[in-house]
Computed example of a mutant assay.
Amino acid sequence: MTSQTEIAGYASLFWTRDLNDDVAAAGAFAASLARSGAGGVRMLCQHETARPIGVWDEAVEDGRGLWVRGRILDVTPEGRMCAALVRAGAMDGLSIGFRTLKARPDETGRLRVLTEVELWEVSVVTFPMLPGARIGRVG
C-alpha cells in the first residue's frame, strides 16, 4: 500500500516581489489552470523534472495567491525523502515552474509583473524564490 503525506499552501502570492524581481498579478494563473487543471501541474522536489514526487489535487487562485493542495507519495526514494523532510519541518517552501506568456514592467520599471503564465509545476523546495510561498498544512 502506498502511503502519502498531504500538504497545502501558497505557491505564489499576488503582488509580492520575489527574489528575481517578479510579481504575479491576480489572474496570472487562471487561463493555465482552466486549460490543465491541477492534474496538469506536476509536483516535484527542488524542480527536479525527471522525478515527480506526488500529485496536486487542487490548484486555485484565491484573493491571496495560488493555493495548492496535494499528496507526496512514498513510491520513490525522492518522495519518501521529501515527505520525511516536510514532516520534520526541514523543508517547507513552495516554488513555481512556468513559462511567461504575458508580462509588463511595473510603474518603477524595476519589477516584472507577470500577467499570464503557463504553469508547469509546483515544487517543494528548501529555499523558495518567493520567501512567503510556504506549505501551511501537513497531514
Score class of each variant (00 low, 15 high):
115 T>A: 01
101 L>W: 10
68 V>F: 02
92 D>T: 15
50 A>Q: 13
104 R>Y: 09
70 G>K: 02
63 G>M: 05
111 L>P: 09
51 R>A: 07
98 F>Y: 11
108 T>L: 08
69 R>C: 03
55 V>L: 09
66 L>S: 01
76 T>L: 02
119 L>P: 08
56 W>E: 00
112 R>E: 12
69 R>T: 04
62 D>T: 05
99 R>H: 14
100 T>I: 14
67 W>K: 00
86 V>Q: 02
45 C>K: 09
77 P>V: 00
53 I>T: 04
48 E>W: 08
118 E>S: 13
86 V>W: 03
94 L>S: 06
100 T>N: 13
106 D>N: 15
99 R>K: 15
113 V>G: 09
55 V>M: 07
88 A>Y: 10
106 D>V: 12
66 L>Y: 01
72 I>G: 06
68 V>I: 03
40 G>W: 04
46 Q>I: 05
46 Q>T: 06
84 A>D: 10
59 A>E: 01
45 C>R: 12
58 E>M: 08
66 L>V: 02
86 V>I: 07
95 S>T: 06
47 H>N: 07
117 V>E: 06
43 M>R: 00
42 R>D: 09
95 S>L: 05
52 P>M: 03
99 R>T: 14
68 V>S: 01
55 V>N: 07
77 P>N: 00
92 D>F: 14
58 E>N: 05
116 E>C: 08
74 D>M: 06
100 T>L: 12
44 L>I: 11
116 E>A: 10
63 G>Y: 05
77 P>E: 03
98 F>L: 05
69 R>M: 02
40 G>V: 02
46 Q>M: 07
75 V>D: 13
78 E>G: 09
88 A>G: 11
87 R>M: 11
40 G>P: 04
63 G>E: 07
77 P>K: 01
111 L>Y: 15
78 E>N: 10
56 W>M: 00
38 A>D: 02
89 G>I: 13
77 P>W: 01
72 I>E: 03
103 A>D: 12
116 E>N: 09
112 R>L: 13
67 W>E: 00
104 R>E: 12
72 I>C: 04
94 L>W: 07
82 C>L: 11
60 V>C: 01
74 D>T: 06
59 A>L: 02
84 A>C: 05
47 H>F: 09
115 T>C: 04
100 T>S: 15
47 H>R: 08
76 T>S: 08
77 P>I: 00
73 L>Q: 08
91 M>N: 14
114 L>H: 13
90 A>F: 15
81 M>T: 14
113 V>W: 12
46 Q>K: 06
75 V>L: 12
71 R>D: 00
48 E>N: 11
100 T>C: 14
60 V>K: 03
56 W>A: 02
114 L>P: 12
111 L>E: 15
61 E>R: 06
93 G>L: 14
106 D>P: 14
99 R>V: 14
115 T>E: 08
109 G>Y: 07
74 D>Q: 05
74 D>V: 07
94 L>Y: 07
38 A>N: 02
82 C>R: 10
111 L>G: 10
86 V>H: 02
68 V>D: 01
